[in-house]
Design a protein around this nucleic acid. Sequence first.
DNA 1: ATACTCTGGTTATAGCTTCTAACCAACGGA
DNA 2: TCCGTTGGTTAGAAGCTATAACCAGAGTAT
Lengths: 235, 235
Amino acid sequence: MRGTHHNEGMSTPRQRYRDQVRSEIKQIALVQIGEGGAAALSLNAVAKQLGVTGPAIYKYFRSRDDLLTELILEGFDEVAAAVRAAVSEGAPRERLHALARAFHGWAVANPHLFQLLAGTPSPGYEAPPESVMRARNVLGPFLPVFAGGHCRPGTEPLREQMRRWVEETPAVAEWVRAFAPEGDPATALAGTVMAWAQLQGVVSLEVQGQFAGMGHSGATLLAAVMDALADSIGL
Amino acid sequence: MRGTHHNEGMSTPRQRYRDQVRSEIKQIALVQIGEGGAAALSLNAVAKQLGVTGPAIYKYFRSRDDLLTELILEGFDEVAAAVRAAVSEGAPRERLHALARAFHGWAVANPHLFQLLAGTPSPGYEAPPESVMRARNVLGPFLPVFAGGHCRPGTEPLREQMRRWVEETPAVAEWVRAFAPEGDPATALAGTVMAWAQLQGVVSLEVQGQFAGMGHSGATLLAAVMDALADSIGL
DNA sequence: ATACTCTGGTTATAGCTTCTAACCAACGGA
DNA sequence: TCCGTTGGTTAGAAGCTATAACCAGAGTAT
């Protein structure tokens, strides 16, 4: 406690070196995950490829799960950025298709990383509370698309449930207000949650190779379900 | 080669004992998977709980992946049976909802087993060709529901793609004919694939606990997306 | 009944994993 | 110049899958 904590939070040479090695580790880990999925991530292999011995990694990450969660959080940011870059003007239906295409495009470009975010990677892996925040950033741009819609009868019960949810959970209300300040929050939530499920379904099946053989139906299937969704919210 | 292979394929006492132990192993493995997911399956732990030492398991299953694939195939049969038990008479829209509820119900009752079928369990796990057959048995009952529908414009491209798929792949044509001998195969396939993706999405999110906090919205969400699907196929 | 074979169990071991403990050199700040 | 913190090392514990070698006994054929 004598030669420490000057430069509170600033970039001492040590700190800069540390950050650089940490990002190198994450980069190598991402390559490994990209080749064999999350289960194929081996800290020993990362260390070897980085030119150090195994236990050295633990000076930078407390555990394998810590490394994974950090990658997951960054992954959420990445896909959120991809979706945000696809917000556009024009008819809500077209904007919805653009957002969906952006999500889908990112996922098929980084299939294993998508599975890392979407699936349950480790045995007893617990998603940190932060991850739901990041996930909300991903879905956020969908909210204003639906905020001006009118639910068809079939989706009315869902809208009712969303209404209750947003009433009971202030964090959700604030989230909706941040992305869709105007329009009906419950309708926006109903459409967004439906879009969420549909994206999850289509993309999950595609990245698992379930559409092998039937052309590149991922995109057309996605367009079809998104169109059905747009109809059911009355866009 | 002297005291063997009489009773070709019949149940000698040895064979019966073997089958019984195999099914005990699978049962214990299912419990472990039900508690911690596929990654938590340890052959050593299975052996210990069965009262034998580790390597004894390998007399019954060639590898951990072998055991997993066998469980997966049986799982497909189970969910297929659950869906098949929900086929009903009446309006197509109601039949669709009944099938979807059956699938959903089975999945939330066996969440880890569902993830075993839906996700990619092991690092380099390769789904055996047999599994697509079984998966088709699961989706089969959905085919006749849509066979009499008429695609809305938004799903027309998907129907066109399905038409090409069924033309180029005899196995698919036969599969459709077996479950929906009448009606348009392309329309049946389009609706079924859409239903598949929607089920996968809703159920995946639910079994991962993503709907925690917002009531039991799995069922209502499922009803909403299925209703949207029924609209888009014109049921 | 007796002799043989095949099978289901054992122990030992290799090689992999995550992760902890103890130690040491060297970098950077005072 | 001195000294503490840090980043690296080796050693090792506990666990995993999987293979090899071996052995007793159950079941079968003569």
